[in-house]
Amino acid sequence: MGAITLEKVTKEFSGVKVIPGVDLEIAHGEFVVFVGPSGCGKSTLLRLIAGLEDVSSGTIRIDGVDATGLAPARRSLAMVFQSYALYPHMSVYKNIAFPLKMAGMPEADIKAKVEAAARTLNLTDYLDRRPGQLSGGQRQRVAIGRAIVREPEAFLFDEPLSNLDAALRVNMRLEISELHQSLKTTMIYVTHDQVEAMTMADKIVVLHAGRIEQVGSPLELYRNPANVFVAGFIGSPKMNLIEGAPAAKYNARTIGVRPEHIQLSTESGEWAGVVGVAEHLGSDTFLHVQVEGIGQVTARISGELNIHHGDRVWLTPPPERIHRFDGEGTAI
């Protein structure tokens, strides 16, 4: 029931190892997010699971069955593409019905299923339209509709929200999360946006240059990043990573402290500096401080703050909130 296992999966493109070897367990019903910078191999990994690319070596198991050599359609997976990949010459109804038609389902059953999906996704009024006549969010819902009617073992999402504007993205994020709550089906979701990863995932897989850097729940990754890469990637604004003398003081090559953990004072503290830019968001204030002997450090302070460009401030990292990394970048 929707459990997916990757064993030593590798992928080469004309001699270049894009995925040098990945082992991963995805439990039934989990919402797993593959996150990483562009070119990290997250989409390739998804396409390998989908069967749209052949693995170079290794095994993919779906529900314990070896699916490595299976054609995409026979893996009982459904995919939502970045460009939505709707069939432009078919109506919304026909788009959603297409996989069922391919499966040879009777017309009456197709109708019932498509209409049920359309109700769930608020598409009932648009069933006769062509994709070209829909807004970005509606197209996205059609793509999801096409995926859910198949009742697959797992859903694959390939950066599904990256073509939407910011407000819509937040809405769709919620809708997809709600869909997961109600369907309880395994979902694998690829994104480069760590906010999407943090907000949606049960389990985050951080990828970098084709390797898995860390696997864990959002808060595990936030609290205990396994290395410098994960530390820098998860969290916004980014964790301050400091090398040299201040790090040596804590017996580490690199230390990291999240902007929201830094304590601010206008009188005294560990690091003295001058405010370069102050971003007043209302709920928070981001201070980009030029600290003597360290460089730029970002601090995130709750609430409104009467501090501006050129002000002199003191920053103090609470010792229990300091992340220490060795020469390899691994957490100590």
């Binding site: 989908a50 749209l52 054609a71 995409p72 359609a73 026979r74 997976l77 459904a78 995919m79 593409f81 970045q82 460009s83 990949a85 709707l86 069939y87 432009p88 297409f98 996989p99 391919m102 499966a103 096409r146 198949r150």
Partner: peptide, 14 residues
């Protein structure tokens, strides 16, 4: 777009 053909493949089209 190639993605559309891939979508068809995922949807079970031979």
């Amino acid at each position: 777009p190639g993605e559309i053909l891939e979508a068809a493949r995922m949807d079970g089209a031979s």
